[in-house]
Amino acid sequence: MQGKAKKLTFLSLAAAVALILSYVEVLLPPIVTAVPGIKIGLPNIVIIFLLYRFGVKDAAAVSAVRLAAVTLLFGNPVMLIYSIAGAALSLALMALCKKCGLFSAVGVSIVGGVSHNLGQILVAMLLLETAEIGYYMIVLAVSGTVAGIFIGLAGMAVLKAMKNVRF
């Protein structure tokens, strides 16, 4: 298998892995029930890997496929707009952060975790027309940072393990 077909096959596989990780995350009990929205963000391991090995366009494509599948399987259309906002802002800022060259994959992942939460909070503030929701961001900044560290380390491990695999 050569070139485009190989790449397409791998990206499809990556989308499947990201989808499975989303499902695993749904199964995990909520870490803090008092504050909604705290998640570890397992699918971001795949997105970070793709960002480093394939680039932002392919990462965005896989992210979009995952979101569509997750919405059909466990979500509802109302939640899709939150998912898109989180995923889009997160990927955009991670790509910028990777490009600027100041951070390792862990730093990029921290930015991804925090900005994912920020995107969702901004949409909630707009849709519900209630600015006060913004204070959730305090807790979500902490959870995004902590989750980002672990996801970044996992992403680094995957990148290292796949170093010799050529696409």
Binding site: G101, L102, F103, S104, V106, G107, I110, V111, V114, Y135, I138, V139, A141, V142, G144, T145, G148, I149, G152
Partner: peptide, 27 residues
């Protein structure tokens, strides 16, 4: 270069947590 990046990662995490802690105290 890698060392520098890791140092920046740590600075990033500490700054984010410090800002959140300050906001939480303020709140």
């Amino acid at each position: 270069n890698d060392r520098k990046k890791i140092r920046n990662d740590i600075i990033l995490a500490v700054v984010l947590l410090a800002v959140a802690a300050a906001a939480m105290l303020f709140w």
